[in-house]
Write a protein that binds this DNA or RNA. Structure first.
Lengths: 178, 178
DNA sequence: CCAACCATGTAAGCTGTTACATGATTGA
DNA sequence: TCAATCATGTAACAGCTTACATGGTTGG
């Protein structure tokens, strides 16, 4: 009964997995880094943390200020691992980069390789299906401007696919995949 | 007191501006075309249409089935026009393609040109700021994998910028901008 | 001492999702 | 006649946003 963790929830789990942080510190991450369009402030993070605690995935441990620092529980660790291990699917693409970032913290490097492989496969597939859509729709039926808009989608997923291939090379070259 | 129309609301206004449609026909558009990850079904569209009606932006006119077909009111037309005329800003980028599609239905072609110009400017700017971020962060501080993730963002906005330039050429060549 | 920042929360409200429910019409 | 599809809705709920509210600590 895994209580459905949201993307924001996983983002938080990923961050406190890197190192224990306070709610405030977590907010700062969202405010200052280009990570996550994930919301911003109080009313989002604190309730989300509360729900993680209730779900038994995170807990606070003592120390001075406020309620202390959030740590992963063993269950939280399992949940995070499960999320990271899932293969990329077509509607995941928004969530995908978030996972990629946190995959780095997972000791099993083959998960990163698997991620990049499935990410590339899915984006290539999507680019191809858009290409076919555009091809089939030629002539009239669909106005040029609409086709141009679809082409935008095609180009960006294509860029994503190219990125995946590049990323594999780079990480390999840097010895990050061993 | 413009009652804040959502993206979904504008998508609906744009569609019924093209031609009057029933709620069901509108749903079909979202289901069958690669337009809009915009939701899908009953519980989204009907309430949204209701709120457009309440806001005086759309109305149904008679004829056989159900409640009839939705038409724009003059106020709806003004609202749609205002939305289309706005220049692209940095956090708009998701919404932007939606607008681009509907700009085609606007008689004033210079709006499309203005859109493409500001779209290109914003995406180029964003790409540049990410490039700087990556450059400043070299060495340690930021782990490679995080940098690789940011690079993904950079590449996709760059693809968007390139698309804008291309789109201007194509539409111009097709005589769509006159 | 005062501003800035650390730190946490609550309350109201809006959107959208899922799932359920209903009935009319059309075509095989 | 029976299934599919047209057609419209409603109720419950989840998630996030905005805005408000509060108080401690630190540095200039």
């Amino acid at each position: 009964m895994a209580k459905t963790v949201t993307n924001l929830g996983f983002a938080l789990l990923g961050l406190i997995n890197q190192k224990p942080r306070s709610g405030y510190a977590l907010r700062k991450v969202f405010e200052t880094t280009p990570m996550g369009s994930y919301s911003s402030s109080p009313g989002s993070i604190y309730p989300a943390l509360e729900s993680l605690r209730k779900a038994g995935l995170a807990e606070t441990r003592g120390e001075g200020r406020g309620k202390g620092l959030f740590h992963l529980t063993p269950e939280g660790s399992v949940a995070l691992h499960g999320w990271l291990s899932a293969s990329v699917s077509a509607d995941d693409l928004g969530e995908a980069m978030l996972r990629f970032v946190f995959l780095r913290d997972h000791p099993n490097r083959s998960l990163t390789v698997a991620f990049l492989d499935s990410f590339e496969a899915v984006t290539k597939e999507k680019a191809e299906s858009l290409r076919q859509f555009l091809e089939s729709e030629t002539g009239r039926a669909m106005p040029i401007q609409a086709r141009v808009a679809v082409e935008h989608g095609r180009r960006t997923v294509e860029a994503s696919a190219a990125w995946a291939a590049w990323a594999r090379q780079i990480l390999d070259a840097e010895g990050e995949l061993e």
